[in-house]
Design a protein around this nucleic acid. Structure first.
Lengths: 245, 245
DNA sequence: GTAATAGTGTCTATTAGACATTATCTT
DNA sequence: AAGATAATGTCTAATAGACACTATTAC
């Protein structure tokens, strides 16, 4: 009986290895924009299980170096892309007895948004190859390890939903961008065109952007450059974007 | 080197107890409506650690009986309230090295919405006392174990956010209810009044309710009773509810 | 000047809030 | 009938879409 036991005594005799507990890992969908398409990063697994199969980057929590779950995700992202400060959002946690051949397994999924100009692909011990794939082509071109196809779908769906009522797509552009570039970004994720005036009103009235003072010059009227204000990377609009009627 | 090892060989020699891995648990905020206030269920812990402290119901995944993470949550809910089919939503996963004295710990949090008439409190081995507390009173009246105060806040904030653009509050009412009762439910969670005609338009135009055919009689004109259509328990409206201008 | 893209003015359609009015019940 | 709550009609205000128009550059 534990009635008389103090918490100190309990902890002193507690050994996690005495229990049957699930594996816990982190997996992430790293999205970027390229060639007018959303791309996701895949890695070829260099270790068992599912050795040689394509998968989302991810791995186990390193309880000696990671202080938080988010740090685990940040570390994975840095290992693969060199990117330090992305937009990172936890999506869901999937756990069941059949998703990993090693046994009952839990994985926390995140998605990251990074600008196409800001990463540098890395090789590391746990993956010999790394590739960017247009998200819409993944299911027809690759067979992903474990349940990563489903996890990718969840992450992509979260992104596509949130583009309707948040400012998230600003995180796919470099620090400075024009409103036309931003509009194009929204349109790509939404999969439909957006009316220019409505779009500009929506973004400018939200007061989440500021002019940099400089312009992007082309073979025409120069476009004002904007950057995101501190709180603007995840602004919630009170209505969904509607698109053409 | 593992170059020559097959996956079968790898799995045969794999032993989870060889690794230092985090604890993984499930915690939940079970909400119901009572006395025109949102209440949450707290349990007094009957086991170490934090023995005797109030906490959110939760516990470890039972890898021999739970097939999925959601089943773990369902099981906990059933153990405490007897409720079988609530509205259950995963909120977030918190993991770090300091939240539990036993070591690196991950917890997946859920919230459940149940009707006040549908539960029956249970006692079980892991908690000697169970109590419903108005959510707004928890922080001033109880000191919760671990980081459960924060987890509760996350769950409650998710609920308060989603009441603005979803139909979630229908899950806090019995199967049959009047529009006035539903409006009151929205108002309690929102913390402000809602205009009657706008509210009715919003709900009825969404086509997520159906008339039961009967009415609730009082000392006045009887009110039509409605039930939620199959997909209506989590309808997303294209705009936030606004409330008085 | 023309071509091209950036940026604006303004009309219309839609819809939520306000609130007065009507409907249906009990006593 | 009086009192109460349910339910609706309809006006107004706010705002998003449509789209024509103006602005500023390169050539």
């Amino acid at each position: 009986m534990s009635e008389q036991q103090t918490e100190q005594e309990f902890l002193a005799s507690y050994n996690i290895h005495d229990y049957d507990i699930p594996l816990t890992s982190v997996d992430m969908a790293i999205f970027t924009l390229h060639d007018e398409q959303v791309h996701v990063l895949l890695v070829k697994r260099a270790q068992h299980p599912a050795l040689g199969q394509w998968a989302l980057p991810g791995g186990f929590i390193d309880i000696s170096s990671d202080k938080t779950l988010e740090q685990t995700a940040q570390r994975k992202l840095k290992e693969k892309t060199g990117v330090d400060t992305p937009y990172l959002e936890q999506v869901a946690t999937t756990g069941n007895h059949h998703r990993d051949p090693r046994g009952w397994s839990v994985t926390v999924s995140y998605f990251a948004l990074i600008a196409h100009n800001e990463f540098q692909l890395q090789k590391d011990a746990s993956s010999d190859q790394v590739v960017w794939v247009p998200v819409d082509d993944v299911s027809s071109t690759y067979t992903l390890a474990f349940d990563h196809q489903e996890i990718l779908q969840q992450c992509y769906e979260r992104l596509r939903n949130k583009v309707q009522y948040t400012s998230l797509p600003v995180n796919l552009l470099p620090q400075e961008f024009t409103l036309t570039e931003l509009q194009k970004t929204f349109e790509i994720i939404l999969g439909k065109s957006v009316e220019k005036k409505s779009f500009r009103r929506r973004l400018l009235d939200a007061d989440i952007l500021e002019e940099t003072g400089s312009t992007r010059k082309g073979s025409n009227r120069p476009a004002k450059l904007y950057r995101v204000k501190p709180e603007g990377e995840s602004h919630f609009f009170p209505r969904n974007i509607e698109g053409p009627r």
